[in-house]
Design a protein around this nucleic acid. Structure first.
Length: 357
RNA sequence: GCCGAGGUAGCUCAGUUGGCAGAGCACAGCCCUGAAAAGGCUGGUGUCGACAGUUCGAUUCUGUCCCUCGGCA
């Protein structure tokens, strides 16, 4: 027998201890399960949440909209009864939901869970929303419809070049960072300047995503590109045979036009164009799948560069119960490092280095 | 077998009166601090079907062959 003996832990006991009110307040533990669309987060998350007797806090910029259910793969009522899901159905499709709004309501939910001695468990694929919890959001002014309307006028009068020229004048540093064609980000930077009188670049320099509100464990799920793409196609086929077209039609009939941010989401955009006879059904399916593949790719680009994610590769044959077990194992290990930082310093350095933020 | 029409990027094709091969789509890589399922940027060496001939130089012209799709037998 050689090597160092790792002490045996009673994980359930430690977990209960970790979730004692004073410890929750002390460590502010947070677990995030992330990954690209269709990788299989939801089913795993439900099992994991059940195991830890907690809830699922969704980090999904589309499931926040009421009435958008099939297209956003929102958990069903039955699933939500099994395990409570929060941060869903927060806004109507005509409202402009955004990262700041998400952060405020998510922090409230997390505090509520701490008060109930439960471990907050965030699950989703919207990288920016997750980042607002794990690394914060700079205290720039919120989006303002009046300023935006004004900027739109400027856009109409003098085009993208006019917007960009103004940004070069008031915030050359941000202008240098942004491409003149990236209208929405150029407008946001102008909005920040008009509302605060300060260049956004200065605020970013001051913030630098350095907030640390939680001891966070980030777990990422990934699959091979081929497997992920196949799952995307299967899910879209399922959505289309289970009411996606009807759901989109109903939203349009309620007056939610295709110009809304919510209606520009995957699926709704393509089905909406199909209903407007811009192209036929087959073309709609092709684009829906293609655009979802592209999205998954963008998600992976974002997540890959996020430091501190513990990645779990899922094999094709792996049942989701097994994936859930692996996630649970990582979480229990994480809880140990919180509970007994002295003994597990080595452990933290080695195995959990990647997953802790 | 004969007569047409073709063979150029993963796909559909354009093109070179002989001089470093180019579009769309697909795909790939990337950026992001209140629209993030949004928005934006970048990426083309490919035996130009094969072999030979003419030429300083052939993907382009000529010849032979191979393959595909029509039509006729």
């Amino acid at each position: 027998m050689g090597g160092i003996k790792v002490p045996e832990y009673d994980n359930q006991l430690l977990l209960r201890e970790c979730m004692l009110p004073e410890n929750l307040r002390r460590y502010r533990p947070l677990v995030v399960l992330l990954g690209p669309t269709a990788v299989g987060k939801s089913r795993v998350a439900t099992q994991v949440a059940k195991h830890f007797d907690t809830e699922v806090l969704t980090a999904d910029s589309r499931q926040v909209y009421r009435g958008m259910n099939i297209g956003t793969d929102k958990p069903t009522a039955a699933g939500r009864q099994d395990v409570p899901h929060r941060l869903i159905d927060l806004a109507d499709p005509h409202e402009v939901f955004n990262a700041g709004w998400y952060r405020r309501v998510a922090l409230d939910e997390i505090d509520r869970l701490y008060a109930a001695n439960r471990l907050p468990f965030v699950v989703g694929g919207t990288g920016l929303y997750i980042k607002t919890l794990v690394r914060g959001l700079c205290p720039a002014p919120q989006a303002d419809p009046l300023v935006r309307a004004d900027l739109k006028k400027l856009r109409e009068a003098s085009g993208r070049a006019g917007l960009y020229a103004e940004l070069m004048r008031v915030d050359p540093e941000t202008a240098a960072r942004l491409h003149p064609n990236d209208e929405s980000k150029v407008m946001r930077a102008l909005e920040v300047y008009r509302l605060s009188g300060r260049p956004m670049s200065i605020m970013h320099d001051e913030h630098r995503f350095q907030e640390k509100l939680f001891s966070a464990l980030l777990i990422g799920l990934q699959r091979t590109k081929e497997a992920l793409y196949r799952r995307i196609e299967e899910r879209i086929d399922w959505q289309l045979t289970h009411g996606m077209v009807e759901e989109t039609r109903s939203l349009l009939d309620q007056g939610y036009g295709c110009g809304l941010a919510s209606m520009k989401g995957l699926g709704y955009r393509q089905v909406g164009a199909f209903l407007a006879n811009e192209y036929d059904y087959e073309e709609m399916v092709r684009r829906f799948k293609r655009d979802t593949r592209r999205f998954a790719k963008r998600q992976m680009t974002w997540f890959r560069k996020e430091s501190g994610v513990a990645w779990l590769s899922i094999e094709e044959s792996e049942p989701c119960e097994r994936t859930a077990e692996r996630v649970i194992a990582l979480m229990e290990q994480f809880v140990r490092t919180l509970e007994a930082p002295a003994q597990s310093a080595a452990l933290q350095q080695t195995t959990l280095e990647k997953g802790c933020v």
